[in-house]
Each structure stands twice: as structure tokens, then as C-alpha cells.
């Protein structure tokens, strides 16, 4: 009798795979890619580390994480969602444009049942994600661990992060 065909969920070749993502941007549209990729990696059983630095600090700062914004100023490829009709990016500088664009993007994200940033961090934390805050960014902003999302394991230096992520595949966002 032949043995049944079974998915190789715990294939040895993927064992020990490690992913590190550096989140350096605090715009709504730049926060999600890192969080989504981290979630995907965790779901595959991959050890995942996130390092929040510079504007990416806003993703884990309790004061800002629920209120990230999307602006299309500077995005010369801007167009209406689902349409090829272009929007001049400088229109994004008009009063209310950022608020409107942010609200619209949040609506689109919610429609896909993708959580807002604070709840997303909970999801990652529950999945065993390692989250680290950048020492220099904390010092520049005069922030301590108290100000950060509880799931953040610590405020560490760049060299600590490099040491922790030895052998990891790395993404800079």
C-alpha cells in the first residue's frame, strides 16, 4: 500500500528560516506592508522580527498608532482607486485632502476585514512576533517603553538588532 499524499507542513528545509523587517515609515500606506508581510511569515511558522525606527516609530507609539495618515502629495502615480483617472498629487496639499484620503483608505482596508493598526499589532503579538523599538528614535522623540505598544519587547540599538537577526532575511520598508 502506498502512503497517502500529505502536505509537508513541517518540511525540514524551511526550519530555522527567520525574517526581519525594518519599518521606517509612519504613513498609513507604508505601515501596512510590513505588518501584512510579518503576519504572513508568522502564519508560515517563520521567526519574525520587526524593528521600528524613525517615522515607523509612529506605528508602535500609543499616541499615534491609531491615527496614521495617508497623503498622496509626492505620489506622482496617484489615481482614483479602481480607475486609471489620475489625480494631480499637489491636490493632496489642499486642506482636508489628507483627512479625506485617509478616511477613504481606512474604509477600503476595513472592507477587506483587515484590522486597524493597534488591533493588527495584537494579532502579530498573539502570533509570536518579536517587536523592537529603535533606541535612537526613542531618544529623539523623548519616549520610553511606557509610551509604546505593550507587545514591544524592548528599546534596542541598531547593533543589538543586527545581532538578534543574525542569519535572517531582511526587508527595509
Amino acid at each position: 500500500m502506498t502512503s497517502p499524499i500529505v502536505p509537508s507542513f513541517d518540511a525540514p528545509e524551511s526550519e530555522g528560516r527567520k525574517l526581519a523587517i525594518i519599518c521606517s515609515k509612519g504613513n498609513l500606506d507604508m505601515a501596512y506592508p510590513g505588518l501584512i508581510l510579518a503576519n504572513a511569515a508568522l502564519g508560515e511558522g517563520i521567526e519574525t522580527h520587526l524593528f521600528f525606527t524613525f517615522w515607523g516609530f509612529d506605528i508602535i507609539n500609543k499616541a499615534t498608532m491609531g491615527d496614521l495618515k495617508f497623503s498622496f502629495v509626492g505620489n506622482t502615480a496617484m489615481h482614483l482607486p479602481g480607475s486609471s483617472m489620475g489625480i494631480h498629487h499637489m491636490l493632496g496639499a489642499l486642506p482636508g485632502a489628507t483627512a479625506g484620503a485617509t478616511a477613504f483608505m481606512k474604509k477600503q482596508i476595513a472592507a477587506l476585514d483587515v484590522p486597524e493598526v493597534p488591533e493588527f499589532l495584537e494579532l502579530l503579538s498573539g502570533s509570536g512576533c518579536h517587536m523592537w523599538a529603535c533606541r535612537m528614535s526613542a531618544d529623539m522623540n523623548h519616549l520610553t517603553e511606557e509610551d509604546l505598544y505593550e507587545g514591544v519587547e524592548g528599546i534596542i540599538s541598531a547593533s543589538d538588532f543586527i545581532e538578534i537577526t543574525d542569519g535572517a532575511q531582511l526587508l527595509f520598508i
Binding site: F9, G43, E44, G45, L123, S127, G128
Partner: peptide
């Protein structure tokens, strides 16, 4: 809790 899902179906829940 997501954490419990990882316990019940380890690795790739």
C-alpha cells in the same frame, strides 16, 4: 485567542 490557535495547530495554524 490567536496565541491558542498556534498551540492547537502548531507552526502553520
Amino acid at each position: 485567542a490567536v496565541k491558542d490557535l498556534f498551540v492547537l495547530f502548531p507552526g502553520k495554524p
